[in-house]
Design a protein around this nucleic acid. Structure first.
Length: 305
DNA sequence: TTCTGGCAGTAGAGAACCAT
DNA sequence: ATGGTTCTCTACTGCCAGAA
């Protein structure tokens, strides 16, 4: 059974004769006759009785027609879905990212993306860099964002964000009036640190060691969002990826430039062994747009006192 | 090779026309 | 009014050609 035969059957049912059906379908009448014959042979029963040279639908034919109409409604649904996919209105995006960008930044990028693609299903997973890399290499996501990346087969790596870390202070902190904070300013202060396995943690520790400054290492956590919350609670100061700043502006968190620079890098990971979809390109465009807005926010936040 | 479609020819049935 | 002939419509089959 094929679609041509079913189309012919529907046309004959709608038009009442093979000749009229042939006109509607734009084929010759013998072809319609042949298609109906093939369909009858396939289903194993007569769809029409030939009475006095005219077609009369059998009971089986009527029952079959009801099923055909039901299936045809499903087919129209498929055609609409295909049309939507062609116009990339629908689809599915699987994103896995490090928490620093997954807490506030990516939700804002998703909101921007959703304006043009409201029906796309998005899965957003937050994992550590090593897991992000593994998932991208195993084709288990469409887009990965990691903070430190070793070369790995099967992944295209593109630099995404390079931002200087900022010093964050709780509201009303004595250093609030200091425009640029240096290691000596934090001597003896409670410091909320990134976890030991974070490569930026090593970078920060090295800076303080080189300047001979001791901090009170009283708290550590692996997530920048948790870190910002701890600072906002007045439990210490810290150095964070500024991309998290916007999420804590409402808590009065203060941000100040930190020197010498501690660099937070983020990379896009795109699985290589499959065609890159337009949805991915569209999402990355939205992400870059939001990133530019984020940079503008950071500039303003660092000017404020 | 298979599928699809067109052309030519054939057959059956009803409608129209005409001679009786 | 009736029966025969012709015309028209519809459906079917066989054959062939073109495209994939």
């Amino acid at each position: 059974m094929n679609l041509r035969q079913v189309d012919a059957f529907r046309a004959v049912m709608d038009c009442g004769s093979m000749t009229a059906a042939a006109r509607v379908l734009g084929i010759s009448q013998p072809n319609v006759s042949r298609l109906i014959g093939q369909l009858e042979a396939r289903v194993g029963f007569r769809l029409f009785e030939r009475q006095s040279g005219r077609l009369v639908t059998t009971d089986d034919g009527n029952a079959f027609h009801a099923e055909v109409e039901r299936s045809h409604a499903g087919l129209r649904h498929l055609e609409q879905a295909a049309s939507d996919i062609k116009a990339f209105k629908r689809g599915r995006l699987r994103i896995v990212t490090v928490p620093a960008l997954g807490y506030g930044f990516l939700p804002r990028a998703i909101r921007a993306f959703r304006r043009d693609h409201p029906d796309v299903t998005i899965s957003l997973q937050l994992r550590g860099s090593s897991t992000v890399i593994q998932w991208a290499a195993a084709q288990q996501c469409d887009i990965g964002i990691a903070s430190n990346v070793a070369e790995m087969a099967g992944i295209d790596v593109e630099p995404f964000a390079v931002l200087d870390g900022v010093c964050v202070l709780p509201p009303g902190h004595p250093l609030a009036g200091t425009r640029t904070i240096r290691p000596r300013h934090l001597a003896g202060l409670d410091f909320v640190s990134l976890a030991l396995d974070d490569d930026v943690r090593a970078q920060i520790d090295r800076v303080f060691e080189q300047h001979g400054v001791d901090r009170l290492m009283s708290l550590e956590t692996q997530y920048s969002a948790t870190l910002c919350n701890l600072v906002a609670e007045g439990l210490g100061v810290s150095i964070v990826n500024p991309i998290a700043l916007r999420d804590f502006a409402h808590r009065g968190l203060l941000a100040r430039r930190f020197e010498p620079a501690v660099v937070f890098r983020s990379y896009l990971l795109i699985p290589r062994h499959r065609p890159r979809s337009r949805l991915v390109d569209s999402f990355l465009a939205a992400t870059r747009q939001v990133y530019e807005e984020e940079q503008a926010f950071i500039r303003v936040a660092l000017k404020g006192r």
